[in-house]
Design a protein around this nucleic acid. Sequence first.
DNA 1: CATGGCGATATCTTTGAGGTATGGCCAGCA
DNA 2: TGCTGGCCATACCTCAAAGATATCGCCATG
Lengths: 310, 310
Amino acid sequence: MEARHLRYAVALAEHEHFGRAAGELGIAQPPLSKQIADLEREVGARLFDRTRQGVFPTAAGEAFLARARRALDEIAAATVDAGRAARGETGRLRLGFIASALLDPLPGVLSRFGRERPDVRLELHEMATSRSSPALVAGELDVAFTLGPPRGAGAEHLVSVPVGHDHVIAVVSTVHPFAGQQAVSADQLRRQPLIVSAGEDEPAVVAGLRTLLGTDSSALGGATAARDVHTIIGLAASGVGVGLGPSRMRAVPRPGVRFCDVTPRTPLPDLVLSFAARDHSPVLRAFLDTIRKNCPDVGAALNDRLRHHT
Amino acid sequence: MEARHLRYAVALAEHEHFGRAAGELGIAQPPLSKQIADLEREVGARLFDRTRQGVFPTAAGEAFLARARRALDEIAAATVDAGRAARGETGRLRLGFIASALLDPLPGVLSRFGRERPDVRLELHEMATSRSSPALVAGELDVAFTLGPPRGAGAEHLVSVPVGHDHVIAVVSTVHPFAGQQAVSADQLRRQPLIVSAGEDEPAVVAGLRTLLGTDSSALGGATAARDVHTIIGLAASGVGVGLGPSRMRAVPRPGVRFCDVTPRTPLPDLVLSFAARDHSPVLRAFLDTIRKNCPDVGAALNDRLRHHT
DNA sequence: CATGGCGATATCTTTGAGGTATGGCCAGCA
DNA sequence: TGCTGGCCATACCTCAAAGATATCGCCATG
């Protein structure tokens, strides 16, 4: 049985007349008669009563037509749904990100993406760089914000694009002596109780701080450890010490704290967007496009990537 | 787009391999490649990723396949449903009947039919013969039990089959003097307070009673009128008088009453089963078949009718 | 570098959908 | 009662396209 048979039966039921139904279908009457006869033979039951007054479905015909109409609706919807999925209007995006990404690029990116693609299901997973890389390789994530380029086995199958540069800044309570300063020096910091990251991404941050304070610095050893940037800011606000973290902390103004530059300017690993090189999913492409529109200093690699698939 | 395209896409998704899917479909690999290519062109999106590891649906393909599977399910169900409807296993039967039919043939017929055709929706409408005939002609009923053959305009398009003969019997309270008698005479009845039908089918019954009691009988004029046989029996049980009604009253034994034959035996119009002559509905046929199996003294016309359609 | 497996392409064959002409049937009508 | 017209079915032909066979190009293996 073919969709043609369903279309012909539905048209015949609608027009109650072989000739007019055939005309509507753009075919002649004899082929329609034959197709309906073939259909009735295949179904094993008479589907239409041919009377002098018109052609009307039998009980079997009514039962058949109800299913036929639903089948035709599904077929029509199949094309529509496939088109929407192909354009990235529907689907799913599994996004991994480090906690600090929630400060700066994510709020803007997610709200814009949610507006542009309301029917895409977003799955957000906060995770350290060390976990998101294998998840991308294994296909458990579609895209991830990581601290520095992804590392580990299979990383060569990932594309990485820096979406923002980063350096160390300090955060202090408004009543702290540093609060009025534009910048604080490494020397000043060495004489303060410090609050630093202790999350899984710690090594990268600690490396930056060692560069800043000197490898012999004992200040780092006595520093308070916090799991993520939000905790660092909170502890600094309550006067526990001077928080040190990525410059993206500035993106979330918060009463009770001030941010200070740190001299010398100490770079941290870039915030990087990674995804599988062979992932051509239109939803991913749409997400990358949103990133490009939302992050002015996005790397050239992303533009290349987008141009490549347009 | 044809059902073939859906079947091929589903098979390809299942086997993840053009060659094996084609083998399963009973065709060679090149035609399958072409059909899938045609499908992708018509949908306007790539539906499968051909990789070295296998053939996998894209996001668009997944969306398409979900709809395709449902469409194919509907198509398969269409044939099944049509077959069931053609065999009269599903559908609807609108049955009109006079109240007294509830006494005798209906309980057995309906319980048997309900067991044999559990998926047929039964619509029961108690109505007088004068109403069921036009309803049958207008197609608002499928079949009806009437008192005597249907009358009125269009009755020639109806088939009528007597399903039981009927005559007048008397019903009295167990404490009534008649209670011990096998039969009562017209003379005895003329000297008793009577309870007779006053429903829409009254004329037929009254005509029978006039035959019994004589047209000059004043007893009928003073009789208590009851709308249906159940009321006649109830009034007789409470001692209001002697109930006169169809012999089918006997089918419902009820404590507190006795039934007596009436002499001379006075026939009433037969209980008749009627339906539209051109109605070949399988549900109707199944119902007639049940009637035949349940009513031993069914008319030859019904057997003819059933044989005609076997 | 050779090999084998896989999907795409080219070309031919054959099925069957659809067109035209016509037949059979029945209601309406003179 | 025979005629006529409308309607669906049948007969037969045509041609598009589904499918078969042969082959190519590609790439991951050894």
